[in-house]
């Protein structure tokens, strides 16, 4: 739940159900969680999987310290980071990712993979992800491949001169 809440802070999405606590519902449409962030983080190929338990624990501690600093009382029925509002999660994650934070590189990794689940579906073959309507790739307007799973764009050029060439261009096409 804590990792879902983290991924949702990076690429927020709509709640999966009215009582969804991890996903804050801060944006329309599916976010990193619906795009498969947990699946990607759970895959050992990323290298972050063995750290996840530790990162969840630390995120809980940071959330508690954050709450104490702001004088907040956290709902004890969910993990501390999940108990924060979206704005509070964002404020905390900003601190963890800021240059100079001693744990920054771990939070950067978690951020990178949360984002990758959404913008490139790095846990799924891309052609399959497109066929299955992967929410991130779809939202970005990534186009469908040809039937053989490869992308080709036979139309690619305005096909006319659009600027004057630099006067000192050499015959090899390079700058002088």
């Amino acid at each position: 739940m804590t990792l879902e809440a983290f991924a949702d802070t990076i690429v927020p999405g709509e709640k999966r159900s009215p009582d969804d606590r991890a996903v804050a519902g801060a944006a329309e449409g599916p976010g990193a969680v619906a795009a498969g962030a947990l699946e990607l983080l759970d895959w050992s190929a990323t290298g972050v999987t063995p750290m996840l338990g530790d990162l969840v624990r630390r995120l809980g501690e940071h959330a508690e310290a954050f709450a104490a600093g702001e004088g907040l009382t956290l709902d004890a029925s969910v993990p501390p980071f999940v108990a924060l509002t979206f704005a509070q999660r964002t404020a905390l994650v900003r601190r963890l990712l800021a240059p100079g934070h001693p744990e920054k590189e771990f939070w950067v990794l978690l951020t990178l993979f949360s984002n990758m689940a959404y913008d490139s579906a790095a846990h799924t073959e891309t052609a399959d992800a497109m066929a299955a309507g992967h929410p991130g790739l779809l939202a970005m307007g990534f186009s469908q491949p040809d039937p053989d799973g490869l992308w080709r764009f036979p139309r690619y050029s305005y096909g006319r001169p659009l600027a004057r060439l630099h006067p000192a261009t050499t015959p090899s096409g390079s700058p002088e």
Binding site: S157, Y158, L162, A163, R164, P167
Partner: peptide, 23 residues
Amino acid sequence: WNDVTYAGGLWGAMCAHSGRTAN
């Protein structure tokens, strides 16, 4: 310019629009 992609053409056109050259 026939080899140049839409993105390259757009960049060329923007350079020209601001009085610059583009290759």
